[in-house]
Amino acid sequence: MPTPRVLILRAPGTNCDLESVHAFELAGGNVDLVHINQLLANPALPRQYQILCLPGGFSYGDDISAGRILGNQIRHHLQETLVEFKSAGKLILGICNGFQVLIRSGILLADDDQGEPATLTWNSSGKFEDRWVKLGVDGHKSVFLNGIESMYLPVAHAEGKFVTRSAALLDRLKGACQLALRYTALHASNGHVPYPDNPNGSQANVAGVCDETGRVFGLMPHPERFVDPTQHPRWTREGLQEHGDGLLLFQNAVRYFES
């Protein structure tokens, strides 16, 4: 199989696009950066690609709420395109703002009769924070997390607290192994993950969620910010790793089509 093609979608306010391009390229992908208006003008464009990535940033300023405006644009104009993409067995990744957009658009977790089942809302700390977190992988559903047990990655967001509309919904997602990535405690803590190890107060310490197929995945931490060993906050103490923890996630996506 030829090198998979990756479409990285940018919109006004997207700002992690270039490092996401870099990460996919390091992982061996063939990457194009495409503006949302190009996609709106040509909704058939994604047919040429195997992987769609919505990178981090502040799409449309995150005005009103994070990811809302771009999420609505997708709902209004690209729903069919993305459903087709998804059902063709392809991969969709949303990082940080991209995760917020996937949630708002209904692509990651479909609406039920009461609307959106979950949200990413304001951090319990009430503010934007940039810090590194330890992550654990639950189950093997997400294609992106194949073979990964834990990662150390940075988060940088104000609205990343995962909240479901009801406890039952949370249980259902958990039962279906869709709560694929969680914040874990840095020090032993009897299962409780205190702030700031859980940086935003997410229910069940959720850091990333996949859809029922495992091929659509969104996460608040930034894997593209740890693909090179010099990005680790303590490399000057602990030495340079062979590569960053986040790189494997991108490699998983690319290898999914190579195997």
């Binding site: 490092e19 810090r131 940088a156 303590r234 000057t236």
Partner: peptide, 22 residues
């Protein structure tokens, strides 16, 4: 410092906060 994104663009090598507990 934590309220500023100091790592966007992916080029961060030495961060403003360093050490065993960052």
């Amino acid at each position: 410092i934590r309220q500023y994104d100091h790592e966007v663009q992916g080029g961060s090598v030495i961060k403003p906060l360093v050490g065993v507990e960052n």
